[in-house]
Simulated assay, not measured.
Amino acid sequence: MSRIMAFGPLAIEYDETVLRPRRWTVAQGRWAATLLPALPPGPVLELCAGAGQIGLLAVHGTRRTLVAVDASPTACAWARHNAASNGLRADVRETSLSDALQPDESFPLVIADPPWVPHDDIGRHPDDPVTAIDGGPDGLDVARQCVDLAAAHLAPGGSVLLQLGTNEQADRLGQAWGRVGLTEHSRYVVPGRGVVVHLRAARPA
């Protein structure tokens, strides 16, 4: 049975086959929206998009298209539905991260919402689809892929908003984004809920 929830000004529909939208992540979508006016033109990329709510909120009120990537067929179906029902433009791609983008594609803003629950802890979340929350041994397997992909396809002057579970995970992942030429600009922390890290391309030495 599907449900509909308010996500900022959007009405987002979903069911038990996808991760239930978390209300605290409205702040991530709004943060993305505030960054866009100062960023280069072009579509917004959302990795591990789920039902698409965060990326759709980011492009709401703009003329930008959302490119939403998720490996789950049902998540992609809901993302397409939610884009259409809210009158937004979305190119939803049902594929793995490794096959999602063409080599010449670039984006001024990349939003990444990877699964970040450590594998041994997924039993604490019995109502969530395993593939939507299982981040591997330390919770960062998919996040590392997102960082690599974002860095490879970030337009000059662009930004990345990466969602993680804890400050400790963000600290641990710092080496990964430093290795691919990204640097941390700021963080938004909701204790007990999650962390969003704002990354930019590192300035030349």
Rank of each mutant, 00 (worst) to 15 (best):
M5H: 08
L10Q: 06
D15H: 08
T17Q: 10
T17A: 14
R20Y: 05
R22N: 00
W24G: 05
W24S: 08
T25M: 14
V26W: 04
Q28F: 10
P37T: 12
A38H: 14
L39K: 11
L39W: 09
P40K: 01
P41I: 09
P41W: 08
P41K: 10
G42R: 06
G42I: 03
C48S: 09
C48Q: 04
G50W: 02
Q53W: 00
I54T: 15
I54E: 07
I54L: 10
A58H: 08
A58D: 15
V59L: 09
H60Q: 13
R63W: 11
L66T: 00
V67P: 01
D70H: 06
D70V: 04
A75V: 06
R80K: 12
A83P: 05
A84G: 11
A84M: 09
A84K: 13
S85I: 06
N86C: 11
L88V: 10
R89M: 14
A90F: 02
A90H: 01
D91Y: 07
D91V: 11
R93M: 13
D99K: 10
S106G: 06
S106C: 15
P108T: 12
L109H: 08
A112L: 04
A112C: 13
A112N: 07
A112K: 03
P118G: 07
H119I: 01
I122C: 11
G123L: 13
G123S: 14
D127T: 10
A132L: 12
A132M: 09
D134P: 12
G135A: 09
P137G: 08
D138R: 13
D138Q: 15
R144K: 01
Q145W: 04
A151E: 05
A151F: 00
A152Y: 04
L154D: 02
A155D: 00
G158C: 02
V160I: 15
L161N: 10
L161Q: 14
L162A: 12
N167F: 02
D171Q: 15
W177K: 00
V180H: 00
S186P: 06
R187D: 07
R187N: 08
Y188S: 14
V189W: 00
V195S: 01
H198V: 11
